[in-house]
Each structure stands twice: as C-alpha cells, then as structure tokens.
Design a protein around this nucleic acid. Structure first.
Length: 556
DNA sequence: CTGGGGAAGGGGCCC
DNA sequence: TGGGCCCCTTCCCCA
C-alpha cells in the first residue's frame, strides 16, 4: 500500500511552510540576503548543509560561489525538486547554478545543471567541474570543491574574507539594492544599509552587520577557541554573519571531535553545556541575540498598544521574543514594514524612550516626535534629541547641526507641560536622575548626569548636556545610540549582532570580549584573586570586590 | 522579602 | 583599531 503523491504533498507542505517561515530553524546568509529554511530539508538535500546545520542556525555562504538570486533558485530546487523554466533558460544562469550546486554539494542539482548545459550544447566550464580537494586544514578530504577556487582559509580566515567582502558589500548595498530587491522573493529578507534589518513575513527580524558597512568580525584569540582541532562551529563564523564565510564544506565522515565538548556556536537554540549556573535565558542564541538586538531597536508605533513597554533595558520583552512585531499585530503589509526594525531607531528614537542611565552613559531618549514613524521608510538614522529619522547619516548630521539649544528644550518643556507640571514634579526618581535633578531637593541642583557638572538652571544644564551628545560622533546604525569612540560603537554593534568570538573551552559560553572570557575562566579554575582586606572575602571579579567593599563602607 | 554574592553585559577611556 | 581595564548595572541564586 502506498499513498500516491505522498512525497509530493510532503514537499509541498514543507515549501509552503518555508514560504511562511513556519518552523524554519536555520537562516542562510548570502551577501545581504537572508533565507529561512528547515534544517532537516537542507540536511537531506546537501551533504554540505548536513554537516553544518546541526551546529549552526545561521550559515553564511561564500558569495563568490553563490549569489542571492542563485541561492533562491537552489532553495526552490531543494524544496520542489525542479527549476523553473525561466530560471534555467539562460546558460549563464545554469552555469551559476552549477557553481552553487557544486559548492553546496547538491549533487542532483549539479548533475541536472550539467545535463542542461550539455543539452544546450555547452560544456561545463572548467571552473564548474567538480573536483575533490582537501580543505586548507586537510580535514575534509572528500569534500567537493571547484577546481578554480583556491582553498579557503580555515575558519579563522574570516577576517580576510570580511575584508574583501566589506568593500563588495558596500558596493552591493547601494548599487545592487534595487536589483536584489527585485530579485528576492518575499520569504527572503533583504538587508541594506538603510534597511539593516527587516521583517520577514512571519515577523522574524534579522540584522546584518556588514550591511551596515562595518566589519564586526573579531578574530578568536589563540588561547580561547583555539586549537588546531577546533571545530568550525566553535569559531565565530556563524555568529558573525558577515565576518565569515562558511568554510569549505566539511564532510560528515569526519567527526568533529570538539563538537561534544565545545558548545555550539552562539547560534544554538539549545541550552548550552552546563556552566556553573546555566542561565539559558540569558545565554541567548545567536539568532536570539540577533533578534534581541533588533528587538532592542524595535519600536512599536506611537500610540500602538504596549508601545512604551517594549524595551526594558537591554532585555527582550517576552512578547517580542519570537520576533513579533507591530506590523504583524496590525496586519500591516509586511513589505511596508520591511524597514521597521531596521530603523529601529529604537533606543534613540522611541523604543528607548525609557532611556538608559548607566554610569557615565546617560542618553536622553525621547519619544518620537509627532509625525515621526519609527521604522517606516528608510529613516534609519535617528536624531537623539528630537527623535526624527533620516535616511542617511549625512542628513542626520546636517539635521543635528540645525538644532539650537532653544528649540530642543522648548520642545521638551512643552512636552513636560503637557505631561502635567514638568519633570520637577515627577514622582519617579528615575526621572529625576535622568534629568540630573536630585529628588526631594528644595532647590534641585541641575547636575549633568554625564560629567556631574552642576549648572545654575535647567537651561544651562541642557546647553551643557547638548555638548555631550554632539561630541558623540559615532552613532550606532541599529539603535541610534551615540558613542564617543568608533571602537566603542563597533563593540556595541557586536552586542547587537550577538557576535561572541571568545568561547570558553570548558563550558562553551561565549563572550564578546577576551577580557570577559579570562574573567569567566576563573569560574572554572576557582581562582579568586580579589580579596577584601577588611573581611578576607575573595572574589573572582574585581567589580564584585568593589561592590563588596561598598557594602563595608555603606552607612548601613 | 531582603540583602549579599556570583556572574555577566555594556560603555568609557587609556594605551 | 583593538586590547585591557575600570566602572556601573542587571539578573539570578541563596541564606
């Protein structure tokens, strides 16, 4: 007994689910396009994917081997078993497909392309001949490679790659955006500079680092991940969407010794290997981190329910955990929303209206101005003081220059009037703090929350504070936050993207900074180098010792 | 419920 | 430009 069309129906269902993003559990990054798919389907179709998907939820493909439009055809083929006639009509297209199929070890597709070329009287170019060659590290003797392609570097190569890709992406970003956007279907998420993140039909949101014109890659230190045996999955390749390209396809025949011990990359959806105190919810996956990054920037439209509660510090509010966005709730056209999260002016424009007061970091985030629709359109660059969005940093800078002290603060005061009495009457101590005014003071001092300078009045304080944000020339393209140094901004961007190049060999936890990893390693070693001279208490972190000392010195 | 400790994230700043 | 360090902060666990 056999159910007729069972396979066809099954594949049809899977393809429909892919189109809707339903149960998709992997994202393939090709240049500046993201494709969602199912691991099982990919693994069943390609040895290459089979070797990668168990460990990575985010896979970068070598753009020299496959372009977004070609990969769309590849993916269509995987899910349907056929190539549309329009796609395959051109020999050039077939040749590109063959290259991609070879790279991805889609033997059936490669054979199909070869037959097609042969049928058309073409012979596959030498560059498209399938050959086998070892990977640069010699670990994948059976992998298929293109003979014309020089062996890729080992996964630590990613900086090299990103270097060349960076320039390419910049060009693609502007020159090919139109074409790509036409090329890409709805289930693909297009990323560009002005739309560094966009929403998939299912509402999932992703972000792309180099689309922002930044090389956010970071070489893993030799001491952290780094042995010759280190598995690609332990390296930042998958956690840095653009800084790395998937290495030469490994073969499944070769077990990756470290896979059991080493954590999956930060893209893992599963809880990590137990650390001392596993806190899965904090150890967000890379996708989760990416989503988190975007969620940090996601802003519900002003007036939308829950508009103000989406961003709580840097945590993702539960309602957004799955990439839920306003547009979806409202049933709005997703295409219209495609720049929404990309705009993510978020902390800068609106989502961060709650503001963040963190030590010396004190940004006054405001609600978007009337008429400013965060995320609608290409207004990715957000003016912190007024919340207006602009499509380019140049326009934003020009706009910032037009701000005068008076107009900024007149607006604020008007807003305060509308809110009923102004901030000095506000009961919320946070408000006082954020305004640099001490609660309860009869004659509140106007103290700058950035440098603690005390001003004689609110106007002076605001004038002074303006100098701070004007002196932060490095805006985060995702959230609009301004930074004093480019390096700090770049580091901040890594946190948006969940790039954690430094992995603990013991528990697999990953960190954005090597220093953090070294600090973390004390958890495993038990080393507590910081000792309280008052009580003898020992601490693994100096900051905790300092915190402890404050407890000693506090009046209570 | 609260406070202390452990662990981690993020920004500023210096080199 | 990146590493290292400092500081502030947050969250969780536990007594």
């Amino acid at each position: 007994m056999e159910q007729q069309n069972h396979f066809k129906q099954l594949l049809l269902q899977l393809n429909q689910q892919r189109a809707k993003g339903y149960l998709c559990d992997v994202i393939i990054v090709v240049e500046n396009a993201l494709f969602r798919a199912h691991k099982n389907v990919l693994a069943a179709s390609s040895v290459y994917f089979k070797s990668l998907v168990p460990h990575d939820n985010l896979i970068n493909l070598d753009t020299e081997m496959v372009s977004p439009s070609v990969f769309r055809q590849v993916l269509d083929f995987i899910y349907t078993g056929r190539l549309s006639s329009s796609d395959s009509v051109s020999d050039h297209s077939v040749s590109s497909l063959l290259t991609a199929a070879s790279y991805l070890q889609l033997t059936e597709l490669a054979a199909l392309c070869q037959r097609k070329l042969k049928h058309n009287g073409q012979t596959p170019s030498s560059s498209n001949k399938l050959t086998t060659s070892p990977t640069p590290n010699g670990h994948t003797p059976g992998s298929l490679r293109l003979s014309s392609t020089p062996p890729r570097a080992t996964p630590s190569h990613h900086n090299n790659h990103s270097g060349s890709r960076k320039g390419n992406l910049r060009n693609q970003r502007w020159g090919q955006e139109g074409r790509l956007r036409e090329d890409l279907s709805e289930e693909e998420v297009f990323i560009s500079g002005s739309r560094c993140a966009s929403l998939s039909p299912s509402g999932g949101s992703r972000v792309n680092g180099l689309a922002l014109g930044l090389d956010l890659s970071k070489r893993s230190p030799s001491g952290s991940t780094a042995t010759e045996e280190v598995s690609p999955s332990s390296l930042p390749q998958s956690s840095s969407p653009h800084s790395s390209v998937s290495p030469t396809p490994p073969t499944t025949a070769e077990p990756r010794e470290n896979q059991r011990q080493l954590p999956n990359t930060s893209t893992d959806l599963l809880p990590r290997a137990p650390c001392k105190r596993p806190r899965p919810h904090r150890e967000a996956t890379n996708l989760g981190e990416t989503g988190k990054a975007l969620h940090k920037g996601l802003v519900k439209k002003p007036g939308a329910p829950g508009h103000e509660k989406l961003v709580r510090g840097d945590r993702v509010t539960p309602e957004l955990e799955d990439g839920e966005v306003d547009g979806e709730e409202n049933g709005q056209d997703q295409s219209e929303e495609s720049g929404h999260s990309g705009h993510s002016g978020s902390e800068g424009g609106g989502g961060g209206a709650r503001g963040k007061r963190n030590g010396n970091t004190n940004y006054i985030y405001r609600q978007p101005q009337p008429g400013f629709e965060p995320g609608v359109g290409d207004n990715l660059y957000v003016c912190i003081p007024c919340g207006k969005g602009f499509p380019s940093s140049e326009q934003l800078n020009a706009h910032v220059d037009t701000h005068t002290q008076d107009e900024i603060y007149i607006e604020e005061e008007e807003e305060e009037e509308e809110e009923g009495g102004g901030y000095l009457k506000d009961e919320d101590p946070d408000i006082y703090a954020s305004r640099g005014v001490e609660p309860g003071a009869d004659e509140p001092r106007h103290r700058c929350t950035v440098c603690s300078k005390t001003c004689k009045d609110a106007v002076s304080l605001r004038e002074h504070e303006k100098s701070h944000w004007l002196n932060r020339p490095f805006p985060c393209n995702i959230c609009g936050k301004l930074f004093t140094q480019r390096g700090t901004m770049t580091r901040h961007m890594r946190s948006h993207l969940g790039l954690k190049p430094f992995a603990c060999e013991e528990c697999g936890m990953r960190f954005t900074r090597q220093y953090r990893l070294a600090e973390h390693m004390r958890v495993h070693s038990g080393e507590k180098p910081y000792e309280c001279q008052l009580c003898g208490g020992k601490f693994t972190q100096q900051r905790n010792l300092l915190s402890h000392l404050k407890m000693h010195t506090s009046p209570s």
